[in-house]
């Protein structure tokens, strides 16, 4: 199961890249004809619902047994689209690796599933301004006397196997801090990471702090310690749009700014345990440009 998920993500990534290329070729000639057609937003308003690409990553996205969609990302996106005149939100559920290919293939209108804004992804999709921000955290078993606070600490102790979310940003951070790739273990999902910790396959599990907190809550019986990483920057997710839907993205940004101003944004984030203050002062430009500029 684990190696299978790994395969999914690997394939999805490679194909996603090649497909986005195909899509650009296709969309190039679509753009050429006619200005008078209705805008994307007008089409969504007429249709009455927006399709949002999601993968189940609590607390960013929560999907219950009946397929009901919740969580910080979808709730915020829903609120924005309601203000834009699109009342209904329809979830298009897939694996994390299937999110961007699905968006580019026109399967969804936007992705709201805690997709961090990074230079690589900015090439493929059009991000909104940052909405959900988070710090990085380390999860460890409590009985392990490890004084780990930074990625550099991980690099110095060569006995540590470090779990990182497959396809996530943590892998790059750890590599940059000098952790050899041979000690990084891709983890397909949260519960798998917890089991790997308990079984001793990994000693540290590096992941966004809110995800870590969610897992610690789920594993109430067990003793885990959660440490916020000191040398990792705040990471921000954005809602992702197709690269030829920049007009829709701009309309979304406009409303998002209003929600940030009137307190709706803070209310939704707090309800899901996110810190609304983290996003302030951060911009899409900054994350898309990447590390050098920080």
């Amino acid at each position: 199961m684990i190696s299978f998920s790994k395969k999914i993500k690997k394939y999805s990534f490679i194909l996603g890249i090649s497909l986005s290329f195909l899509y650009f070729i296709h969309s190039a000639d679509c753009r050429a004809n006619g200005e008078s057609r209705p805008t994307r937003l007008e089409k969504l308003q007429k249709r009455g619902y927006v399709r949002i690409g999601l993968s189940n990553e609590p607390p960013w996205t929560v999907i219950d047994a009946d397929g009901q969609v919740g969580g910080a990302g979808p709730d915020l996106t829903h609120a924005v689209f309601q203000r834009m005149g699109v009342s209904e939100l329809q979830g298009v559920l897939s694996t994390f690796g299937g999110l961007i290919p699905g968006l580019l293939a026109g399967r969804s209108d936007a992705i709201s599933s805690g997709l961090f804004i990074q230079p690589g992804r900015c090439q493929a999709v059009a991000f909104s301004e940052p909405d959900l921000c988070d710090r990085e955290a380390f999860l460890m078993k409590k009985d392990m006397p490890l004084a780990l606070k930074t990625y550099r600490d991980l690099a110095t102790d060569s006995s540590l196997q470090v779990g990182v979310p497959a396809g996530g940003t943590e892998e790059r951070e750890a590599l940059a801090a000098g952790v050899p790739a041979s000690r990084l273990v891709p983890v397909p999902d949260g519960p798998s990471g917890m089991i790997m910790l308990l079984a001793g396959r990994i000693q540290v599990y590096s992941l966004p702090a809110s995800s870590a907190q969610h897992l610690v809550d789920l594993w109430r019986g067990q003793k885990f310690s959660l440490v916020t990483v000191e040398d990792a920057p705040v990471m921000c997710a954005g809602t992702a749009f197709s690269p030829n839907a920049v007009d829709l993205r701009d309309a979304y940004d406009h409303v998002l700014a209003k929600l940030k101003a009137d307190g709706t944004y803070d209310r939704i984030l707090r309800a899901h345990g996110f810190d609304p203050s983290l996003a302030r002062g951060h911009t899409r430009e900054e994350f898309c440009r990447g590390k050098e500029s920080l």
Binding site: I8, N56, V62, I63, G97, G98, P191, L218
Partner: peptide, 29 residues
């Protein structure tokens, strides 16, 4: 079971979702 890739919720995908929701691994599998 590979259809989870294309947003179809088959039984393996549902089990996986259940795991992520509840943290239970033994029962769903």
């Amino acid at each position: 079971s590979i259809v989870s890739l294309i947003s179809l919720s088959d039984i393996t995908f549902q089990a996986q979702q259940f795991r992520i929701r509840t943290g239970q691994t033994f029962l769903p599998f």
